[in-house]
Design a protein around this nucleic acid. Sequence first.
DNA 1: TAGATTGTTAATCGATTAACAATC
DNA 2: TAGATTGTTAATCGATTAACAATC
Lengths: 215, 215
Amino acid sequence: MSPENVERASGDRLTVGVAARLSQYLRVLTQAKKMGKEGISSQEISEYTNINATQIRRDLSGFGKFGKRGVGYNVDALSGEIRKILRTQGQHNIALFGAGRLGQAVASSSVFADHGFNIAAAFDTDSDKVGQPIDGMQVLDYESLTNVIREKNIIVAVLAVPGEAAQQVADDVVHAGVKIIFNYTDALLHVPADVAVHTTSPAVELLYALYFYLA
Amino acid sequence: MSPENVERASGDRLTVGVAARLSQYLRVLTQAKKMGKEGISSQEISEYTNINATQIRRDLSGFGKFGKRGVGYNVDALSGEIRKILRTQGQHNIALFGAGRLGQAVASSSVFADHGFNIAAAFDTDSDKVGQPIDGMQVLDYESLTNVIREKNIIVAVLAVPGEAAQQVADDVVHAGVKIIFNYTDALLHVPADVAVHTTSPAVELLYALYFYLA
DNA sequence: TAGATTGTTAATCGATTAACAATC
DNA sequence: TAGATTGTTAATCGATTAACAATC
């Protein structure tokens, strides 16, 4: 083991860049496995992530020799190693807010389940939606959020509500103990410093892809 | 103007990093305007994007002096400047594939419209959905995609179809001339080198947020 | 004037890339 | 053996950060 590996193994935090890239590799590996692929090369991962193949090999070799020269990486084995590094081998309960079309789409998708995230509760303020089924669960009354979040030890909230309601929901879930908010709305959310907000912005990614197409 | 500005103004391509960050700033500015904000500081933009405030000022000052010391930036003016830099002032037609819950959620959202993207056509293979209204349009038959894409000069396709159908749709839209694919499915898409694929992966972002929460 | 925030520099750190020996 | 791909080095480039004068 190189000195660098010893440091890493001894529990240093990953840099933001490394953690983000490892997560990307895991997405590709998870999907590759679903598609029945057993092996994969750094070049293939590169094509799916737009991350340089040398960078990928460099990131991985910082934690061990996971590949076979001339062959590539084993999909299952590499997935396991990355999960270990990211310490995300367990299941995590998450809460979904908003049982509209977007909320239903999120609930019925396998993207969260594939990565160990279990939608443990879904909430809506609309009394017509409360009690209705959503992905095998019942939509819960928004008023019950604090108790449910505490009971089920939920630290991740997914916001699929109207933009106007987003800040109120953010305030309420933070008060109940949520530390990570995944924001599907376009609202700019104010949260305490110890809470992380991730906002999806498809249009932003398009803008930027378009620049490189037009230029 | 510094030599660097002269270079930029003369038509050099932005680096990937700069273009990505400018797009982020534009998302915040667009939303800040919606919320009635007239001015904004680099510190505020930093809070919403998780990009360092010095980095933001540095990025912007490479193109001109857009701010006022002691005051900050004017939201409208700065939006305009960034749009100029990204050359995305016009309207762009995009095509939506899949009129299920996710497709409907995408169509009824304002995220694309806010940034000048006009959903000019929506397609589905399900004959029950074809002809039905979606966000003021009619869902079109999937078979008509090639003609519609060429007629409306569409270079961006948004995929909200089942994962199993994604590669076929990608092949078809590429054949019709699409250059940018926004992939909401979990499929790993094979496309020619001149086509850009952007895959949204909420679970990946959660994984990585969770790492920093757990560590 | 006092407070705030930009624009800019300089130093450091991490990402990117090409190249290639090692080895499957 | 021949071909392929990893693991690793070294050089370069861009991102990050602290610091602070300029100035609103």
